[in-house]
Amino acid sequence: MLIRLIDIKKSYSLPKVTIDVLRGINLEVSGGEFVAIMGRSGSGKSTLLNVIGCLDRLTSGSYFFMDIDVSLKTDNELAELRNRQIGFVFQNFNLLPRLNAWKNVEIPLIYSGVSAKERKGLSMEMLERVGLLDRADHKPSELSGGEQQRVAIARALVNRPVIVLADEPTGNLDTRSNHEIMDIFGKLNKEGVTIIIVTHEEDIASKTQRTITIKDGVCFSGCY
């Protein structure tokens, strides 16, 4: 099993109140799945994705990623895990504005210690896969939203992760770009990459194999 969440809870302590965002979720995702997580805003679906992506720690419960108990890992070990096994795609792309496309793509490789020469080759290869080789030297501000998101996907894939986590990846895009992005995810999944997409669009969810619905921090459906 790639991902196994057992009764996970996550709460944020604010000065006056404590907000329980996740209130006991049990979830399993196996390798090669294409999953959508749905839910209204504030339902906790993004928090769930952050937990799965080892960006955030649990308040209680256990999380096994590739049969590793994540709670036992140090921050540095989690950074390494994210670097090598997990690719992130964000709603607002989160590219570094000062860097051009291929320099953005190579960032994960920098942190996994790949030499500068190899980095450029691998980055270009990834840009080719998302069809943006001719845009390699453009800065994010010179690219359309769809192109920026494809650069972000190339960046997520460059270290050949086992799983790609996408948080509303099409939320800021037009319909045509939507299709492009979903096509890329579909192809990736066929190549064996596990993909989890957080979305609130039925349209997007319908293109995945399985839909998990989160309501008020608990699983409403799809969590087996």
């Binding site: 921050d75 540095n76 994210r82 670097n83 090598r84 994960p108 270290n159």
Partner: peptide, 16 residues
Amino acid sequence: TREIGIRKALGAKNRD
């Protein structure tokens, strides 16, 4: 701050 967040998400350690 955002850049730091992005870099950390992509695998930068505290040390980096």
